[in-house]
């Protein structure tokens, strides 16, 4: 199944080479979780991220549990901070 991944900040560096700017379409296994997708893309496990699926905030403890569905929009951002 296919999902769209969108990243913020410099996290586009973890997207595959065929990305368009900060977006990529990924083929993932049925039932894959945000945690697995991030792991496969090489996001450091000890990093802090803001993860949103279809507009819903996904807390760190939910990331290994939530099963992604075909067409989902996964947004991965660096932690929020002041500017």
């Amino acid at each position: 199944m296919k999902i769209t991944v969108k990243t913020g900040g410099l996290l586009y560096e973890y997207l595959p080479p065929d990305r368009t700017a900060n977006r990529a379409t990924l083929d993932i296994a049925e039932g894959a979780t945000p945690h697995q997708v991030m792991q496969d893309l090489g996001f450091p496990a000890d990093g802090s991220y803001l993860v949103i699926v279809n507009g819903e905030l996904i807390a760190p403890e939910k990331r290994p549990e939530l099963r992604l569905a075909d067409g989902d929009q996964l947004s991965i951002n660096p932690p929020l901070k002041g500017g």
Binding site: K6, G8, G9, L80
Partner: peptide, 13 residues
């Protein structure tokens, strides 16, 4: 990217 790096995250959030 400067501090404006955060605008995309704030938009998604």
């Amino acid at each position: 990217l400067g501090t404006n790096a955060m605008i995309d995250a704030m938009q998604d959030f």
